[in-house]
Design a protein around this nucleic acid. Structure first.
Lengths: 342, 342
DNA sequence: CTGAAAGCGCTTACAG
DNA sequence: CTGAAAGCGCTTACAG
């Protein structure tokens, strides 16, 4: 198909080494030779074959990003940042969707382990420590979100316990006493859901409020329908909640929908807090109070750490804890007046 | 780093050809040899180097997907489907974000033109026919969304004129007479915005309603803030609209926010229709009436057509028009009762 | 059924 | 400042 270095060399009447020198902009090429080579390149429409270059260098210039699904805005926004950060360093990003099952087969088959990528940023979810440890032996790895086991690989996350505690404290500070939690998951022992639940419980304990298991509703996935269904369950309780801490914004937006459809007012009757700070929550009615992780910083840290590993850094696993901040908006702001959308 | 075919061959005491035969599961390998090779593979932890294989085959097994940004849910959902469709065919997807500027530099540098991908699915936006024609000479191309010029490359899209006409007719059918449009763009002559505007105008004309340029508001990008700002502009008119057709759901959700914040009721005072059918609109309050393109079909058609080209199909540019359907929800349903969210 | 050799397109010591 | 040659790891005619 395309022309190769050899073709260019032949046309320019020089060796491939010289063409390579010109292409890679090494000095020590005479101006005359350089322009002759340039001409040949233009004439043939030559562009370097990156696959060959990668084979030679022993790397592909591509990193993988394994996420549950792009359909969850938090991950889409994060992917956006990761791609941008990688591009700044002239790396490309291959995205793998794990469907939240963290299915080993998928990861294995999808190139993560087949040396087509030089490193992997992975949101682990259902993957266990053992599997990840094995993966790390093959491939530089950066974990996103939550530590799966002690010192498995580099990690970038926010302090989820503190974040959850602050969110719950904020609701308690509003004077609410029946504070529910939506998003519990029993899948893995160290998952994000568990640490968020822990922060929730700490806040309740500090406020001297008894933990009521009825107020903690699991969510199979973290989409709006799950939040909506969980909220319906909570509304069916004899003593329903007056506030809800949702483990992500999508669950919160689903819960919000259920509340409004049931004729309840938010925050007057039930206040809501989410996590992620996705754009949706800044334009919903009411707007959504949320814990905002610094996604740009998370993405940059992940890419930086991964490339350091790809470049041979041999150090014990590192942890970057990115900052987060509670964004108070209408869904917990009882001062603002109520409005009627329909 | 990892073991190569040669290492395995040496350990198993056979030639590399034989190892290759085993790895690729060719028949005609004696059971004894096969198991000896298998053992060596396990022992060395051998996995094939895809880069080398790709060099040999002259292709990378990777296709590119160039989108404005993953932060726009429609594109994130589409990317999700494209990745899934590609994976079914054992292809990987490299995502490029063009930032809506369709910037040539980015595309050029980001691998699209550097032979690291075997084909490209691209949402063209600001790219002109000339540039795309030049690209197609290098690389199999499938255009997403809108035809940029006559017969430039394979295209998959919905019938945007009809979709826009139907959306507008739906609003007119509600008895609205001041129907605004948000999302006009002057960038390219054949862009999606223009065909949607055309459908809008056709519907007005068919209903015998004069076209009022004051009711058509441009949007620089298609995010919620743009819709919110455009709606504020419309509300400042002496004779504000009683309905709005937004060129995508994000604009519609932004407009919705402005209306509710201004104390207006939707749809009682102003009815709204969007395009894209993103998940947000199914859970907003009120839920959003929208034109739903069949994203799965769009993604599958794009991947199928691209792979056909990658496999050498030499045919004139083809067009796939995917189905769409108007999803009527609360934002235009004047029959449903009004509820008060806050 | 298996082996030795060439070649995909590049880069990089090694000479000159 | 430039060239001839080896090699990255794979596959594939070509022999046997």
């Amino acid at each position: 198909m395309g022309a190769s270095l050899k073709d260019v060399a032949k046309l320019a009447g020089v060796s491939v080494k010289t063409v390579s020198n010109v292409v890679n902009e090494y000095r020590h090429v005479s101006a005359a030779t350089r322009s002759r080579v340039r001409e040949a390149i233009d004439q043939l429409g030559y562009r370097p074959n990156l696959t060959a270059r990668h084979l030679r260098y022993g790397r592909s210039g591509i990193i993988g990003l394994a996420l549950p699904e792009l359909g969850i805005p938090y991950f889409a926004e994060l992917a956006e940042e990761v791609i941008a950060a990688a591009e700044r360093e002239s790396w490309s990003v291959l995205i793998d969707q794990t469907d939240g099952r963290g299915d080993r087969e998928r990861l294995t088959s999808s190139g993560a382990r087949s040396r087509t990528i030089d490193g992997l940023i992975i949101s682990p979810l259902a993957l266990d420590a053992e599997f990840l440890t094995a993966m790390r032996a093959d491939l530089p790895l950066v974990l996103l979100g939550e530590q799966v086991g002690p010192g498995i690989a580099d990690l970038v996350a926010i302090d989820n316990v503190t974040a959850a505690r602050e969110a719950t404290e904020h609701l308690l500070g509003l004077g609410r006493r029946r504070v529910a939690a939506i998003g519990d998951q029993r899948v893995s022992a160290a998952g994000t859901a568990n640490v968020r639940l822990q922060g929730y419980r700490e806040a309740l304990a500090a406020a001297g409020i008894a933990y009521d298991p009825d107020l903690v509703v699991p969510a199979e996935s973290y989409h709006r329908p799950d939040g909506a269904a969980a909220m319906r369950l909570l509304l069916s309780l004899a003593d329903p909640p007056d506030a809800v801490f949702c483990f992500n914004d999508l669950l919160a937006l689903g819960a919000l929908r259920t509340l409004l459809a049931a004729g309840l007012r938010v925050p007057a009757d039930v206040a809501i807090v989410g996590v992620d700070d996705i754009e949706d929550g800044r334009f919903s009615t009411p707007t959504l109070t949320t814990v905002a992780p610094d996604k740009t910083q998370i993405a940059e840290a992940a890419v930086t750490m991964l490339l350091e590993r790809v470049n041979g850094l041999d150090a014990p696993p590192r942890e970057v804890i990115a900052p987060h901040a509670l964004q108070v908006r209408e869904s917990t702001n009882t001062v603002a007046g109520a409005r009627c959308p329909m």
